[in-house]
Measured scan of single mutants.
Amino acid sequence: VSVELPAPSSWKKLFYPNKVGSVKKTEVVFVAPTGEEISNRKQLEQYLKSHPGNPAIAEFDWTTSG
């Protein structure tokens, strides 16, 4: 189950709350306009370098507050 949070234009930000008793931590995933899922800052940096014209990296908020 995921919750969609505010994201930069043409992107989606999905929040996957951890299940009770789960060892997996809460996860935030950005979905690029191409449909590619980005789950960490390093991936995001690589994606933005190879896909010019996207929002600046500073516009991506990895917190769950939206």
Rank of each mutant, 00 (worst) to 15 (best):
R41F: 12
F60N: 01
S39I: 13
V20Q: 13
H51F: 06
I38A: 01
T63H: 08
W62L: 02
K13S: 02
L14T: 04
G66F: 10
Q46S: 11
S10C: 13
A7M: 05
E45C: 08
E4N: 09
L14H: 07
N54G: 12
E36Y: 04
S22V: 07
F30C: 02
S2I: 14
E45S: 09
S50V: 09
I38W: 00
L48G: 00
S2V: 15
E59W: 05
K49W: 10
A32F: 01
P33K: 00
D61G: 04
Q43R: 06
E27M: 15
G35K: 02
W62V: 02
Q46H: 10
T63L: 06
Y47C: 01
F60T: 01
P33R: 01
H51W: 04
L48A: 00
E45V: 09
P55V: 05
V1T: 12
K49R: 10
P33Y: 02
E27I: 15
S50E: 13
V3A: 07
P17C: 14
V20S: 12
P33D: 02
T64A: 13
N54F: 03
V23G: 15
F30P: 00
S22K: 06
V1D: 14
T26D: 15
P17S: 11
T64R: 08
I38P: 00
S2L: 10
L44M: 07
F30L: 04
S65R: 09
K25D: 15
K19N: 12
V20M: 10
K49T: 11
L44A: 00
V3P: 05
S10E: 14
V31R: 06
H51S: 02
Y16I: 10
K49E: 14
A58Y: 11
T63N: 10
T63G: 12
I38F: 08
D61A: 05
G53V: 04
N40Q: 06
L14C: 10
K42C: 14
K25F: 14
W11Y: 01
A7K: 04
W11T: 02
E45A: 11
Q43G: 07
S9D: 14
I57D: 04
G35I: 00
E27H: 14
E59I: 05
I38Y: 03
W62Y: 03
S9H: 14
F15R: 04
V20H: 12
G53H: 06
P6N: 08
F60G: 01
P17F: 15
G53S: 06
N18M: 10
T34N: 07
K42V: 12
K12N: 05
E37K: 14
G35A: 02
A56F: 06
N40A: 04
T26F: 15
K19Y: 12
G66S: 11
Q43Y: 06
S22F: 08
T26M: 12
S10W: 07
T26L: 10
D61E: 06
K12D: 03
G66P: 12
A7P: 10
K24G: 15
K49M: 13
Q46W: 10
I57E: 08
K42I: 13
S10T: 11
L5K: 06
S2N: 08
L5C: 08
V1F: 11
Q46P: 00
P17T: 15
W11I: 02
V20C: 12
F60Q: 01
E27S: 12
T34H: 03
K42H: 12
N18K: 09
V23W: 08
E4A: 08
P52N: 04
A58I: 10
G35E: 02
K25Q: 14
P6D: 09
F15Y: 14
T64Q: 07
I38V: 06
N18V: 11
E27K: 15
P52M: 05
V29K: 07
V20K: 09
K19V: 13
I38H: 01
N18H: 13
G53M: 05
K49N: 14
K19S: 11
S65Q: 12
R41S: 10
S65F: 09
P55T: 04
E59K: 04
G21M: 07
T64L: 09
V23Q: 15
K13M: 03
